[in-house]
Every structure is written in structure tokens, then in C-alpha cells.
Design a protein around this nucleic acid. Structure first.
Lengths: 166, 166
DNA sequence: ATCCCTGCAAAGGGTTTGCAGACGC
DNA sequence: GCGTCTGCAAACCCTTTGCAGGGAT
């Protein structure tokens, strides 16, 4: 969910990440914690590239390879989620402390809005049972035109008509 | 849905495509109809590349550019659907005459199973109204482990334990 | 001291684009 | 004949990989 960052949240997720790395016998490098910090000081969805460039701007010498590597780790320990909103471009969002939700994307302005519906959970467990799948996660995206883009479209259609009449 | 091809279905979709091209003042090229034919003689999901190579095998000189171009057209007139099952790789499936459905993907063997649930439609219209979106389409994918891969996992876990004991 | 993790740059894979020639209209 | 569509190849974009050096344990 679009979020206000609680000041202590970053500490919490760092502890979770730290425990995860320890459990998996992975190294606690500065780079990994810098990346986590950068992510949790952000809002909404982001792409790997903008995360990379923003970190660079702050004069941390972190490579793309490390960014991608760390994103994978953070997905594994459930601190972020990865999405594909139709394009060949992964988008990520932090997930600690936010309840499960899905997305509506405006096909005109690409705005992403979040929503929750308990029926998804029902479908998930019912279909898992029915088809004998052990379902681990899902991705539900709705695509359409948001309110303001609907208006824009109407206005454009109107002005086109105007031209035709003249 | 996984399909048996009715013999007359290819003619039907060609007519639809033809009417669409006419309406949009686009040209009816042999390439476009060849591609449509190839798609509708297939089953299940496919990727642009395999479509391209299969057409090539049949000695039609059709380029990748044309394949991608035609896929876009076929999406526009609702004769095919485009999916992204988590990877940066689009998958397509024919959609004429098949009812709306969603997908469950096995994360181990990548098998894709289809399912329908009327609640999706309800969520769609309710959320559209609630958030003032004119929703045009959606994509719902569930990810998990299918029955046979669950067994495989159990067997592997068991044999690992065996090794540890010895 | 070990060897996992890093930065860098290049490769990779899917998709898109630019251009000259071909062909539907 | 005009202008769109095509084939080809190169470019493009995001992501992954190979390698040599560096830092966590």
C-alpha cells in the first residue's frame, strides 16, 4: 500500500533481513543494507534502474549486478514484491507491514491503484484444492481507464467532432 | 482453453480479421493471414519466437518484425490474448470462441492450467465502480506447485534425509 | 586465509526500429 | 502509382553473466 514510513520501520526490516542472511549463511554486506534502506525510504512502485540511479546519485558505489542480486534476496525473505504490469519491465514494492493487495493500472497514464478483495483468497484456496496445486502466490492486475483519463478522452473526442463539423 | 480446432473455425477467424483490417483501412496481406492460420492451427500457449520458427520451417518467408506486428493487430481485434507468466517473455493464445479464463502456473515444471471463476467478474465490476475505472481487461495468475511436482519434491526431500542418516 | 560478494563491462534474450524494396489498393 | 507493409539486420532495453579484486567471516 502507498505508505507513510514509520521511522522505526527501517530498523525492523533491517533486523529481519539480517536474521534472514544469517540463517542462510549469507554475508551481511553494506551494499545489501544500503539497498534495503533505499527501498524502504521510498513510496510506491519502482524499477531496478531507478533504484540503481538513485543510489548512485547518493555516491554509493553500488553496481547494477548487486542491485539485482539483492532484489532477489529481498523477494526471498518477503521484504519486497515483484510485479510485471504488462510490459517487459519488472516493478518492485516493499511489502513488510502492508496487507496483501492487488493492482488496477490505467492504460493511458500508467497510474497504479491498489485494492483488496477477500474473494481472491477464496478463489485461491478453492482452485488450489480443485486442481491439486499448492498455491504460493498470485498476481491480479486489472487494466482500464482511470477517471481523469476518461475525461481527457471525452474532451478529445468532443474536439475531434468539432473539427469534423467545421 | 485447451482446444480441439473446429475445421471451420479458421475460416471464421479469417473473416473476422478481414473485416477488421477493412474497417481500419489496413492491407490484407498474405503474411497476416498466414500468421493467423498458423496460430489457430495450434493448441495452448505459444511465444512469438516459436511461432516465427514454425512458420519459417514451412518455407514461408515471414520476418520477425511482421510476426510481432501481426500479433499486435490480432490482439486489437480480440483474436488472441497476450500473457506474461512472471518472466520477461510474452506468451500468446488464441481467444476466439473460448470463454474467459485465468491461469495457474506450476513454478517447478512451468505447466499452465486454466480455470474460470465468476467471482473475478464481480470483483472487476465492483472495483471499477468503486475506484472509477473503466476496466477493459485483467490478468490473474496463480503460482504454485502442481500435484506431480509436489510428489517429486517430497521424494527429493526424503532421499536427502536418507543421505543425512547414512 | 578463505571464498563469497562486489563492480565493471560485456553478453544475452526478447522486442522494436530504420530502411530500401515489394505489393495491396 | 501511391503509400503501407515487408524482410533484414541492427539497435534497443532490461537483465544476467564472467571475471578479477575486495571484504565478511
Amino acid at each position: 500500500m502507498t505508505s507513510n514510513n514509520r521511522p522505526d520501520q527501517i530498523e525492523e526490516v533491517k533486523n529481519i533481513f539480517s536474521a534472514y542472511l544469517e540463517k542462510k549463511d549469507l554475508r551481511k554486506t553494506n551494499e545489501r543494507f544500503h539497498i534495503l534502506e533505499e527501498i524502504y525510504s521510498r513510496h510506491d512502485h519502482f524499477e531496478a534502474e531507478s533504484l540503481y540511479t538513485d543510489i548512485r546519485k547518493k555516491n554509493f558505489n553500488i553496481s547494477r549486478a548487486t542491485v539485482y542480486n539483492t532484489l532477489e534476496l529481498l523477494i526471498s525473505c518477503d521484504l519486497i514484491k515483484k510485479h510485471q504490469f504488462g510490459k517487459n519491465l519488472a516493478q518492485y514494492e516493499k511489502s513488510y507491514g502492508y496487507k496483501q493487495h492487488d493492482h488496477i493500472i490505467c492504460v493511458d497514464c500508467k497510474k497504479v491503484v491498489e485494492f483488496c478483495d477477500p474473494r481472491i483468497q477464496q478463489i485461491k484456496s478453492m482452485m488450489g484444492e480443485l486442481l491439486n496445486f499448492k498455491i504460493t502466490h498470485h498476481s491480479l492486475n486489472m487494466y482500464g481507464v482511470c477517471g481523469s483519463c476518461q475525461k481527457k478522452r471525452e474532451m478529445e473526442a468532443a474536439s475531434k467532432k468539432e473539427v469534423e463539423v467545421n
